[in-house]
């Protein structure tokens, strides 16, 4: 019961704190609008907000899918091809030490104002955590299992598919959780740098016109979307791992 009530209690508490902050600081509506004003705007401009949110949602999902896929492929190559490891690791580190935000203008220049530049941005942000987590999991195949596979004369590819990849899934799923939590950053930053639609664009646009209540409404939608995406991913991964009896890293 308390588990059911808790989220509502937290949200109510936050709203009250927000209202209290407006009341105490006497902030004018163009600096900090109160919750009621934001909810009115939310209701009034719901169509616009939903349209823009749909675009951002698509960018996040596509970025997540492509980024995860690319990350998994890279990790598999790193784990299986010895020379790839030596050549690719430095490249990976270099690309990751470069702030992705600095690349955003270039991506917009190359890929245009539309969807592709935002998806590319998201891919860049989540590629590294997914690769690192999955590769780490693949490297940590228990020594005893490696020995057993060798004694049993296992084919490397079969060993990879039937033992190493499944055993690395808990690591991969932590990578995917981080990826889902950070994917919205990529989409929003991409929209800020150059776009004509999406929640990031709407916020920048509203900011320019002093429509702070609209900005807050967009922010609200964005956070609801990000949190539900994260919770859904978390739930699905958890179910998958439990189905495979891997949820508490049992290998015995």
């Amino acid at each position: 019961m308390i588990k059911f009530i808790r989220p509502f209690a937290i949200i109510t508490g936050l709203l009250l704190a927000w209202q209290a902050l407006v009341y105490i600081t006497e902030a004018p509506p163009y600096i900090l609008p109160d919750p009621l004003a934001v909810s009115q705007t939310l209701y009034r401009r719901l169509d616009t907000l939903i349209n823009h949110a749909g675009i951002t949602f698509l960018e996040i999902i596509l970025g997540f899918l492509f980024g995860s896929l690319l990350g998994c492929c890279s990790a598999l190559i790193l784990a299986t091809v010895k020379s790839a490891r030596d050549w690719l690791t430095p490249v990976l580190v270099i690309t990751q030490s470069l702030p992705v935000f600095a690349l955003a203008p270039i991506l917009v220049l190359w890929l245009g104002y539309g969807l592709p530049s935002k998806v590319a941005m998201t891919v860049l942000i989540i590629y590294f955590p997914v690769t690192a987590a999955f590769y780490d999991g693949l490297r940590r195949t228990p020594k005893d299992w490696q020995a057993l596979a060798k004694v049993m004369n296992a084919k490397p590819m079969a060993f990879l598919i039937h033992v190493r990849i499944p055993l690395a899934l808990p690591s991969l799923s932590s990578g995917l959780r981080v990826a889902m939590a950070t994917a919205p950053i990529g989409a929003i930053v991409g929209e800020w740098v150059g776009s004509s639609e999406g929640l990031g664009y709407l916020m920048l646009h509203a900011n320019g016109r002093m429509q702070i209540d609209l900005m807050f409404a967009a922010l609200l939608i964005l956070s609801i979307m990000a949190v539900s995406l994260y919770l859904t991913t978390d739930h699905l991964l958890h179910r998958l791992l439990r189905h495979l009896s891997l949820d508490d890293h049992k290998t015995r």
Binding site: V151, L244, R252
Partner: peptide
């Protein structure tokens, strides 16, 4: 020609 058995049963949980 060898089989090998350890302290850990090394069963795959899934």
């Amino acid at each position: 020609q060898i089989s090998w058995m350890t302290q850990d049963a090394l069963l795959l949980p899934w």
